[in-house]
Design a protein around this nucleic acid. Structure first.
Lengths: 147, 147
DNA sequence: ATCCAATACTTGACTAATTCCAGAATCCAT
DNA sequence: ATGGATTCTGGAATTAGTCAAGTATTGGAT
C-alpha cells in the first residue's frame, strides 16, 4: 500500500522541515492555499474536498492555524470578510482589496524593505508585524458603479 | 417641549452637515464614540444605554454603519475581535494592536503624510485608503507571558 | 515489520458578532 | 398638521470560528 504522505512535489519535505506532522489533509490544504491565493477557509474546504473527498471544518481551521504558526502560510484578515490565506511568506508584501467585490491582489511594499515594520512610537509594544491593506475599487467594479 | 435633536455641543450640526437625519440615538452614539475611542459596538451600546436609557442592538449597528458611510467615524476590524470605532477621521493615522488583549492605540503615520496611500502598482484600482495595523504585544501582556 | 504513545481528525454542539426582516414609530419639508 | 421617507424595534437567521470528547493516523522505538 502506497503512503499518501510520500509526495513528488516536495510538499511533504517542506512540512517535515518545519516539524509539522505530515497528513493527507495537511498536504491537500497546503496545495490548495498555493493554488488559490487569498482564499477563505471556506473556499479552501471546498477545494480540499474536491481533491481528497472529505475533510472536517475543524481540521481545516486547525491545520490553517498550525501552518500560520509555523510560518508556512500567512493569514490576512480584511475588515468585513473572513480571513484569507496565502503562501507568499516573509517578503513583506501588502494587499489591495476591492471594497465591492473583495478581490485581493498582492502589492509590493511601497517603501522598501522593512521600514513599514517600524512604528513612530511603539507605546511599549513589542511589534512583530505590520499589516498594510490598501482599500479601493477594482476596474470592473468602477465601471459597474458608473452605470 | 424641548427637542432632543437640538444640542449645545454642535453634534447635531455636524450630522446635518453630512445629511444625516438627527435622532437622539445618533447623537448619543456619536458622543459615545468620541469619548471612548476604539470601543466595540457592545461597549458603545452600554455607554449609550447609560445616557439615554435604552437602544436596540440594531439601531447601534445601523447607526454606526451610517456614520462610517458618511465618514463621520472610522471602523477598524482587528482579527479575532469585534469591530472598533473611533472619531479620528481623515488624518491618516494607524493602529497598534495587542495580539493578546486587543488593546488598541493610535500611532502616527510612520512615513509622513500620505505616501502610505500610494501603492507601488495600483493594478487599475482606485485606492481610497491605506490601512496599517501594527501587531504585537503590549507591555502588560509581555510580562504576563513570561511567567 | 509491528506496536504504541503522541498527534491529528471527526462529529456535533456552541458562541459571538453581525445582518435580515417586517411592522411600528419618528422626523422633517411642505 | 400631514404624508412620505427614514429610522427604530425585537426576533430570527447567518457567518465565522471554537470547544470537547472520542476515534484514527503518524512516526519513532522495538
Amino acid at each position: 500500500m502506497e503512503k499518501v504522505t510520500d509526495t513528488t512535489d516536495g510538499v511533504d519535505q517542506l512540512l517535515r522541515q518545519h516539524k509539522v506532522q505530515v497528513t493527507a489533509q495537511r498536504l491537500a490544504i497546503m496545495r490548495a492555499v498555493s493554488s488559490r491565493p487569498h482564499a477563505t477557509a471556506d473556499d479552501l474546504t471546498d477545494d480540499v474536498r474536491a481533491v481528497i473527498g472529505s475533510i472536517s471544518r475543524q481540521a481545516v481551521y486547525d491545520t490553517l492555524g498550525v501552518l500560520v504558526d509555523k510560518n508556512l502560510i500567512r493569514r490576512i484578515q480584511p475588515s468585513g470578510s473572513a480571513a484569507r490565506y496565502e503562501d507568499r511568506v516573509g517578503d513583506n508584501h501588502h494587499h489591495l482589496i476591492c471594497r465591492d467585490c473583495g478581490t485581493t491582489v498582492d502589492v509590493d511594499c511601497a517603501v522598501g524593505e522593512v521600514p513599514c515594520l517600524t512604528a513612530h512610537d511603539d507605546h511599549g509594544f513589542e511589534i512583530d508585524e505590520a499589516e498594510v491593506i490598501y482599500w479601493g475599487m477594482c476596474s470592473p467594479c468602477q465601471t459597474e458603479s458608473k452605470k
